[in-house]
Amino acid sequence: MPRHRAARVLIAGLAVVLLAIDQATKAWAVATLDPSDPPSYLGGFLTLRLVRNPGAAFSLGSSATWLFSLLAIAALTYCLFVLAPRITSRGGAVVTGLAIAGIAGNLIDRIVRPPGVMRGHVIDFLQIPHWAIFNVADMCIVATAILVVLGAIREAVVERRQKQAAATP
C-alpha cells in the first residue's frame, strides 16, 4: 500500500474509533452519572463528575461558546483537507487522527447539545486531582499537543546532530 494511502487509512481509522469512544462515553456519562453523587475510583484519584462545560479548559471563555465552535470548524477543516492529504508517516498519521477525533468530539457537543446549535455545552466527566474535568476528546487533543512538541524536539535534536556531524572533519 502506498505511504499516502496507508497514512490516510490510519488517520481515518484512529479518528473514527476515538470519536466513537468519545461519543459513547459521553452518552454513558449523561445517562448514568448523578452530578450530585459522583463516584470515585483508585483511592479517589479518579472521580466521575458530570459537568456541562460551555467554555474551554477550566471553563475559560464560557460566554464565547460560538467562537470555540467556529475555531473548531476551522481547525477540523484544516486537518481534514490540508493536513491529512499531506501526511505520509505513521507518526504524522497518529497525530492527525488524534487531532481530528478530539476536535470533532467536542465540536459535535457544541452543535447538538443544549442550549443550542454552535452554543452547546461539552460533556466532561473525568476528574483527577488538581486538574480540569475532561473527556476522551480532550485527552486526544492533549495527546496531540504532547506528540507535536516531542516531534519538534526530536527533529531539533536530529538536525543539531547532522550539523555537528557535517562540521566534524
Results as ranks from 00 to 15, higher is better:
M1P: 06
H4P: 08
A7H: 00
A7R: 00
I11E: 01
G13P: 13
L14H: 05
L19T: 05
A20H: 04
A20V: 10
I21C: 07
A24R: 07
W28K: 04
W28H: 05
A29G: 12
T32Q: 08
S36V: 11
D37S: 11
L42Q: 03
L46R: 01
R49V: 07
L50S: 04
L50Y: 13
P54A: 15
F58P: 03
G61Y: 15
S62Q: 12
S63T: 15
A64W: 15
L67I: 15
L67M: 14
S69D: 06
L70N: 06
L70S: 13
L71H: 07
L71M: 15
F81L: 09
L83F: 09
A84N: 01
P85A: 03
T88G: 08
R90W: 09
A93Q: 10
V95N: 01
V95S: 14
G97Q: 13
I100P: 03
I100Y: 00
G105Q: 00
G105M: 02
V112C: 09
V112A: 11
R113C: 03
P115T: 03
P115Q: 13
V117H: 05
V117K: 15
M118G: 02
R119D: 01
L126Y: 15
L126T: 08
P129A: 01
A132R: 12
I133F: 01
I133T: 05
F134S: 00
N135T: 03
D138F: 00
C140T: 06
A143K: 06
A143M: 10
T144F: 10
A145R: 07
I146V: 14
V148W: 00
A152F: 10
A152P: 04
R154P: 02
R160D: 05
R161N: 08
Q164W: 05
A166P: 11
T168D: 15
T168K: 15
